[in-house]
Amino acid sequence: MVPIVFKWIVFLVASLLAIFSAIMMVTRRNPVHSALWLVVTFISLAVLYFLLNATFIAISQIIVYAGAIMMLFLFVIMLIHLEKGPEELKVLGASKIFAIVLTVLLFVEIAVGVYYYRVTTFKPGPMPLGDAKTVGFLLYTNYLFPFEIASILLLVGIVGAVMLAKRRKE
């Protein structure tokens, strides 16, 4: 068993890194820098998933998010020469202050909800192991129909992306 102190250290490092890189992602002006900081956030979230015994989800987080989706983002940023980016509003206008107040309210709401969240069906014991075998077994038995729907959704996504990005003949 992993000692509890080690777990705490990993949790603190990964969560602080996730928060820091998320803040960096939101505040950078260059979209390429933002995308790379977002990759750091995704990888530290994958570490947290490993800590929660969700090994299958952690690996697919690294492959799908940090690999495929962010590669797509970087590709599009470089395709349309966005490294400089459109001019952002420099001044802290009234709308921005209103937005920040609104989101702080949202955070307080969620935090209060988390603080008073008491599960009546809490079962003590270790976290169930979500490796590829157990998650795959569930996906191919109980959740077979949603799984097939997901494959159709991906197919529609591929066809839609190709149709949209195709250059029309004028």
């Binding site: 998320a22 992602m25 939101v26 920040i100 609104l102 989101t103 969620i110």
Partner: peptide, 18 residues
């Protein structure tokens, strides 16, 4: 909750679509 709030701040304040 913290990560969700950071994301919401970004959605509201940033102007760059990507």
């Amino acid at each position: 909750a913290i990560l969700f709030t950071i994301g919401a701040v970004g959605v509201i304040t940033r102007r760059n679509g990507i």
